[in-house]
Design a protein around this nucleic acid. Structure first.
Lengths: 94, 94
DNA sequence: TGAACATATGAACAGTTATTCATCTGTTCA
DNA sequence: TGAACAGATGAATAACTGTTCATATGTTCA
């Protein structure tokens, strides 16, 4: 196994290794949301949400689209769901 | 979704969010290894490996068994592999 | 028992990171 | 154009984390 792949893998999991980001991603499971929707839903400041969205976007886990003044964010692809589901199964197993 | 579950999920992914731990886990894919095997294979100090193994053990991702002076570590269950495979698919996709 | 080996662990340090605050950019609409 | 709204961003701070170093614990065997 290439060392670089394992490095990238750790970088990927780092994205999911913060509860704010996990909550954001989970909130996007049902579809796209804009920044203020997310702030409200998660009781986070607009700035904190925006900072985390930038990280998630850099990591290609979410994508953004502008609609007027708002930016709507959604999950970038199915992998996000697959990875989170794999983790959820571990966490919720009894 | 229970907030606590998402918190636990982030805690789980934190385990995978460090390249030393990911390398250790991947090294254990082929079967159990003791601490010095791991140190040698990964070019890490014994102490660093041991510290990370403690974290992985607390997170129930690895289990340990003593054999004489050595401690043999192995993956705790299939979820570890499943989660890493899910991540690897994302990372190695082109 | 005591030497040698394998691993664990605590303290300290350096590097990283999430949040907050203040401010800036971008968009709409009157 | 300018006010109002939505979001982005840089700097600062506090908290967290991985590694190293030194040392302790645990095991074997002569």
């Amino acid at each position: 196994m290439d060392e670089e792949v394992l490095y990238d893998l750790a970088e990927l999991f780092k994205m999911f290794g913060d509860s704010s980001r996990v909550r954001i991603l989970y909130a996007l499971f049902d579809g796209e949301l804009n920044v203020s929707d997310l702030s409200d839903a998660l009781s986070m400041t607009q700035s904190a949400v925006s900072h985390q969205l930038r990280i998630l976007k850099q990591g290609k886990l979410v994508k953004a689209r502008r609609e007027g003044k708002s930016m709507y964010y959604s999950l970038a692809d199915d992998h996000v769901r697959i990875i989170m589901d794999a983790g959820l199964e571990h966490v919720t197993e009894e």
